[in-house]
Computed example of a mutant assay.
Amino acid sequence: MAVLILVGYVWTPYDTTGMSGADKFLAPCLAHPLGTDNFGRDILSRVMEGAGSTFLIALCVVLIGGIIGTVIGCLTGYFGGAADLVLMRVCDAITAFPSILLALVLINVFGMGKYQIILILGILFIPSFARVVRGEVAKERNLNYVASARLMGASHLRIIFRHILPNTVQVLLPIVAIGFNNAVLAEASMSYLGVGVQPPDASLGRMLSEAQTYLGRAPWYALFVGLAIVLMILGLSLLTEGLQQRRRS
């Protein structure tokens, strides 16, 4: 899947938006290894572009949620007090709602599209990072090396981001991998519902939604798109498991 995505950024066998009435619903063949869809577009080309789009959206979502959530977690875990109480209650309020339902509500505010989905999902991913980082920083702030840094006159921000944060990397890596996995699923789900990536851009979730209409006529359409989603999630899940095992060992 990684190779497919990387190649898809620079080359696809066919134009992903090019339509041909004469090539509608072609079964897999040498010219079109995964067949064609209801507009005569090459499914392999669109899977390559759609997987790349899903990957980039998931990456941006994890970056937004991870960076903002890490900063919030570091500050609240280190300083505590009223700011910690308020920000953690805000995180609780966000996580109390089903993520898809809350995303649909936010879509009514920000609108539909690729960039809106990145922003919305990024906001929804902040609490998960903030809570994990907060717990680790709160644990580290009372250790001897932090007390030594204070005695040496290090500023609070230097202690947080230069001394404490690097010691939480082993915990953060599995969380990032899990977040990436969840971001891929969330993007595919939103596009499947028609509120994510909009036509003519390719998206695995939207392609799967289109394919279900033609299951009887072109079963390969749903099969190959669904298989691409499964392989991405499986690969990310195996990566996450590997990181967690490494951390435990």
Rank of each mutant, 00 (worst) to 15 (best):
L165N: 00
F161Y: 15
Y221V: 00
P200W: 12
G194Q: 02
S148R: 09
M190R: 03
L143D: 08
L101T: 10
V169S: 07
G226S: 12
L101M: 15
N181P: 00
A177M: 13
M152V: 05
E210S: 12
G196N: 07
R158Y: 08
W220F: 10
T168C: 14
A228W: 02
E136W: 00
R217C: 01
S155R: 14
R158E: 13
P174R: 03
I175D: 12
A147C: 05
I120F: 04
N142Q: 15
Q170D: 11
L119K: 10
L215D: 08
G216W: 06
E210F: 06
L223D: 03
A188G: 11
L193M: 14
F110H: 04
L143H: 13
Q198L: 14
L227V: 13
R141W: 07
L121H: 06
E187I: 04
R134T: 08
Y145L: 02
Q116M: 09
L223I: 13
I100S: 01
V146K: 07
Y115K: 05
S189W: 03
F161E: 09
Y214A: 12
I123D: 14
R150Q: 14
M112K: 14
R158V: 02
N167D: 11
M207R: 08
G153T: 00
A218M: 10
G196L: 09
L157P: 02
I175Y: 08
E210I: 00
T168I: 11
S148W: 04
F129M: 14
L223P: 01
R158Q: 13
L121R: 10
L151K: 04
I107S: 03
V133Y: 01
I159C: 02
L101H: 00
D201V: 13
V132W: 02
V225W: 00
L173G: 01
L157W: 13
V146T: 10
G205M: 05
R150I: 12
W220H: 15
N167Y: 10
G113R: 08
L193I: 05
I178T: 12
G194V: 06
P127I: 06
S203L: 08
G216N: 14
N142E: 15
Y145I: 02
L143A: 11
A147D: 15
G153V: 04
M207L: 10
R131M: 09
L102Q: 02
N167W: 11
A103K: 00
L104E: 04
G135I: 01
A149T: 01
I126D: 07
E210H: 06
A177R: 03
I107E: 08
Y145Q: 02
A222C: 13
S189V: 07
Q198I: 10
E140K: 06
G179L: 03
L121D: 12
P199F: 12
Q198V: 12
N142D: 15
H156Y: 02
G205S: 08
R134D: 06
V146C: 09
M207T: 05
E210G: 01
L185R: 01
V146S: 07
R141A: 11
S191K: 03
A130F: 08
